[in-house]
């Protein structure tokens, strides 16, 4: 896999909230069509790094960055970056399911409509395809006009995945996507992640060590805003190079 060319590449990337450091000197390469997990204790900058990749952190006032963060070879913090294009190529799934208070159909169709798709039949085709990709089609195909808020938490999260897929991204960022879900719903999302990696690059932040071990190919361990160790998941969990990593994955820390 390391022979593949990296799709996301950061070099000494630093992120500041005002004068407060979010992450510092992160250098790592994330490979396409695979699952990369980010683990680490609370407040160590996992979300900060993840949310830098699609620049959703821009919504916060007074942020600053240093270093380079490349997505498909383009520095996302370049001032010429088109945020609309970037975010259509880098989809995001959030910690708490956040469907719009609209119908299931309109949720999935939101992205394509922004891209200018108007034809109902084409939208229908996209909605069906993406709901199938998110393993939700079977459960909702007869009630696409029902409010998304009437779905269960796990279904809502899969709807959010379908909604993110509908803009045809290459990369899917997931920030603790299962932390609000029960074990069965979590299992379904993990199966889905496993399936999606054939087509998408997935970066997932998780507090659940077993989850990282189960779904990811490579794992990055963050601590206090720094990248401590980044290697294949097997190595990180079986035979980490750093003492800090070992303490964390064996549960002696954090």
């Amino acid at each position: 896999m390391s022979d593949k060319k990296a799709i996301i590449k950061s070099e000494n990337f630093c992120f500041y909230y005002g004068s407060k450091i979010g992450v510092k000197n992160i250098s790592m390469e994330i490979y396409p069509k695979s699952v990369t997990a980010i683990i680490g204790p609370s407040g160590c900058g996992k979300s900060t790094f993840l949310r830098s990749i699609n620049r959703i952190n821009d919504l916060i006032a007074n942020i600053k960055t240093k270093g380079v963060l490349l997505v498909k070879g383009h520095n996302v913090y370049d001032k010429n970056t088109n945020l609309v294009n970037l975010r259509q190529q880098v989809g995001m799934v959030f910690q708490k399911p956040n469907p719009f208070p609209k119908s299931i159909f309109d949720n999935v169709a939101y992205g394509p409509r922004l891209q200018g798709v108007k034809k109902r039949s084409y939208l229908q085709q996209i909605v069906e395809e993406k709901l199938k990709a998110a393993a939700l089609w079977g459960e909702v195909k007869d009630e696409l006009n029902k409010s998304a808020l009437a779905l269960s938490g796990g279904q809502q999260q899969r709807l959010c995945i379908a909604r993110a897929l509908a803009t045809n991204p290459d990369i899917l960022l997931m920030d603790e996507p299962c932390s609000a879900l029960d074990p069965i719903a979590t299992g379904k999302i993990e199966d889905l992640i496993d399936k999606l990696q054939t087509d998408y690059t997935i970066v997932i932040v998780t507090h659940n060590m077993q989850q990282a071990a189960r779904v990811s190919e490579r794992t990055a361990f963050f601590c206090l805003g720094e990248l401590i160790e980044y290697d294949s998941t097997v190595k990180i969990f079986r035979n980490p190079a750093k003492k800090q990593t070992e303490d964390y994955v064996t549960g002696r820390f954090g």
Binding site: L59, V84, N85, R87, G91, M92, F94, K96, F100, L114
Partner: peptide
């Protein structure tokens, strides 16, 4: 209206204008 809905909209490539008027 929570930040989560706005983030969802921006995350899908919506502009501020689109986020305000569509979400």
């Amino acid at each position: 209206i929570g930040r989560d809905l706005r983030e969802a909209s921006y995350g899908l490539g919506a502009t501020r204008f689109e986020t305000i008027f569509k979400v």
